[in-house]
Amino acid sequence: MTHAGDLPVWAAIATSCLVLLGAGLTLVGALGLLRLKTFYERVHAPTLGATWGAGGILLGSILLFTVLQSRPVLHEALIAVFVTVTTPVTLMLLTRAAVYRDRSEGKDIPRP
């Protein structure tokens, strides 16, 4: 941690809170993956880590490197855009695949 020596205390505390919030939400999402009973319930769990879980860590990183002024914060912005665009798409594709498989096995999934 040599690069953070001259960081003001408020920035350190704010970054810590954001990062711990993000990591905590991600862990809760993973726990949901383990605890919930059916596939359609489990699809909801990873969105926790992908929305504010990733958001907290990225905001913390942006704050840290902006205050330190060591480098511009471009990668974080790109990752944030990418995660917000891709996560819903993958989850939607997976639910559709699961619905298709369940229907072809004769399980009762309502039709719109």
Partner: peptide, 20 residues
């Protein structure tokens, strides 16, 4: 709308029927 609904935890978009 699909992206909003799916990225909100608690709701997930499953299917959309374009005729009805």
């Amino acid at each position: 709308l699909a992206c909003i609904v799916t990225s909100t935890p608690g709701t997930a978009w499953v299917e959309h029927d374009s005729t009805s």
